[in-house]
Simulated assay, not measured.
Amino acid sequence: MAAISHIITARPEVTAILRRCFAAAGNALVAIAEADSRMRAVRQLNAMSDEELAERGLKRDGIVRHIFSDKFYI
């Protein structure tokens, strides 16, 4: 009994093109997420001191939960 196996490999240029396409799509998704007003609010609250957060009734570990509480169950 003879066993024949073929290993199919993509050409390097095809692999590079696919890699660039997936990287571009991932970068676009990150840009969309970072442009969201909720993410801006998270960055603004993270920039505050612990005392300023306490005045607003927040702790640093509760910022994301506070911002996204109406959208996600966190």
Rank of each mutant, 00 (worst) to 15 (best):
M1T: 09
M1N: 11
M1K: 10
A2F: 15
A2G: 12
A3S: 08
I4T: 14
I4A: 13
S5F: 00
S5D: 11
I7P: 00
I8T: 03
I8Y: 14
T9P: 02
T9S: 14
T9C: 11
R11K: 15
R11F: 06
R11E: 13
P12Y: 06
P12H: 09
P12M: 12
P12W: 05
P12K: 14
E13N: 09
E13H: 15
E13P: 00
E13R: 13
V14M: 12
V14D: 08
V14S: 02
T15Q: 13
T15M: 13
A16N: 09
A16M: 10
A16D: 12
I17N: 03
I17F: 15
R19D: 09
R20L: 14
R20G: 07
C21A: 12
C21G: 04
C21H: 11
C21W: 14
F22V: 06
A23R: 08
A24H: 07
A24M: 06
G26C: 08
G26A: 08
G26T: 05
A28W: 11
A28M: 07
A28T: 10
L29N: 06
V30W: 00
V30I: 15
V30T: 11
V30R: 11
A31Q: 08
A31H: 02
I32N: 03
I32R: 03
I32K: 07
A33P: 01
A33R: 07
A33D: 06
A33E: 04
A33Q: 06
E34V: 13
E34S: 13
D36Q: 03
D36L: 02
S37H: 11
R38G: 11
R38V: 05
R38I: 04
R38Y: 03
M39R: 04
M39H: 02
M39A: 05
M39Y: 00
R40H: 13
R40Q: 14
V42A: 02
V42I: 15
V42P: 05
V42S: 02
V42G: 02
L45Q: 06
L45N: 03
N46S: 07
N46C: 08
A47Y: 01
A47G: 09
A47P: 10
M48P: 05
S49M: 03
S49Q: 03
D50T: 10
D50F: 13
D50W: 07
E51Y: 07
E51Q: 07
E51F: 05
E51G: 01
E51D: 10
E52Q: 12
L53H: 04
L53N: 02
A54H: 07
A54M: 11
R56T: 04
R56Y: 02
G57K: 05
L58A: 01
K59A: 15
K59W: 12
R60L: 06
R60P: 14
R60T: 05
R60D: 10
D61R: 10
G62T: 01
I63H: 03
R65F: 03
I67S: 00
I67C: 00
I67G: 00
F68K: 00
F68A: 01
F68T: 01
F68Q: 01
S69H: 14
S69R: 15
D70C: 04
D70S: 05
K71T: 12
K71C: 04
F72E: 00
Y73H: 08
Y73V: 01
Y73C: 00
I74P: 03
